[in-house]
Design a protein around this nucleic acid. Structure first.
Length: 279
DNA sequence: CATCATGTTACACG
DNA sequence: GCGTGTAACATGAT
């Protein structure tokens, strides 16, 4: 699923129901042990069970739950993962891979967090320091103050590949994925094949604005559901219906009425308007 | 049967 | 060391 707006939508949905609650059981279902990045499933469940969830965070596409032990529970949804709140007695469903059971309370009807993941790429990890649960060279989160126009300018100046690959690279900025990178390039009027180090400082600042704008507007719509994404309450997001280019191959550009094209860049389907977006 | 799909990582090659 | 292309991971839809 899940680029920054989807992960943040999930976090916001979970937060009020999780903070202050105690994890009384953690189960990784038979055959899906691969999702566990700890040395083994026993260690992971041992470090989860009995802990109170103190707070929720997000860094790029990672969800982070801080625990009363001081540990961080770090979840990545990858392509098709979703964390969904469930009421007691709910069946696991075909694609549930793991679940957490929460201590029951008078004022919350949810007792389970179900981890659904069709393609089984998602990961769970419990670490002492949350940074140890993130990719080694991860860059600043796209919506944090650490991500600035100057940071983007200096990073792109050093890269000779396409702007598409630079923006997909989580070490440039954390949180963007295939859908929003296409939208961002359209908004900034940049051909996705343009070399990063040939983009002017002025254009890079426009690109920065396009990133902020695209992400915050997608967030307002509760993220985009390409296929499997649902929020913490099992509801899909609506941002895909508002894309300028993603998923609109063969349709007319809203700005110039020309036909939206689709090509492949770094192995990813890439949508753009040949007239509005320049090299 | 073939192709494509929201993400990330590993590897071969130039 | 860097960039690119490709495969891999596992599954489903078309």
């Amino acid at each position: 699923m899940p680029e920054l707006p989807e992960v943040e939508t999930t976090r916001r949905g979970l937060h009020p129901h999780l903070v202050g609650r105690v994890i009384v059981d953690a189960q990784i279902h038979q055959g899906f042990e691969r999702l566990c990045l700890n040395t083994n499933v026993k260690e992971l469940t041992h470090r989860l069970i009995g802990q109170r969830i103190i707070d929720t965070h997000r860094y790029g596409k990672y969800l982070i739950f801080s625990l009363s032990s001081g540990d961080s529970f770090v979840v990545h949804l990858r392509m098709t993962g979703a964390l969904v709140l469930r009421e007691p007695g709910t069946l696991t469903g075909k694609y549930e891979r793991a679940r957490l059971s929460l201590e029951s309370t008078m004022n919350c009807m949810f007792e389970t967090i179900s981890f659904q993941d069709v393609r089984r790429f998602g990961t769970w990890n419990v670490v002492g320091d949350f940074e140890d649960g993130l990719a080694v060279n991860i860059g600043p989160d796209a919506l944090s103050p650490n991500f600035s126009p100057d940071h983007l300018v200096s990073t792109l100046r050093r890269k000779s590949g396409t702007i598409k690959s630079a923006l997909l690279d989580q070490s440039t900025v954390a949180g963007l994925g295939n859908i929003y990178v296409d939208e961002i390039c359209f908004m900034a009027g940049l051909d996705p094949r343009k070399r990063s180090n040939t983009i002017s400082k002025k254009k890079t600042k426009e690109l920065f604005i396009a990133i902020q704008d695209t992400l915050s507007r997608a967030l307002e719509r509760g993220g985009a559901s390409f296929k499997d994404y649902v929020n913490a309450h099992g509801v899909p997001g609506g941002a895909l219906d508002h894309c300028y280019v993603y998923g609109r191959v063969g349709m007319n550009c809203y700005k110039c009425d020309n036909t939206i094209k689709k090509i492949k860049i770094v192995g990813r389907g890439t949508h753009y308007c040949p007239k509005c977006q320049r090299r």
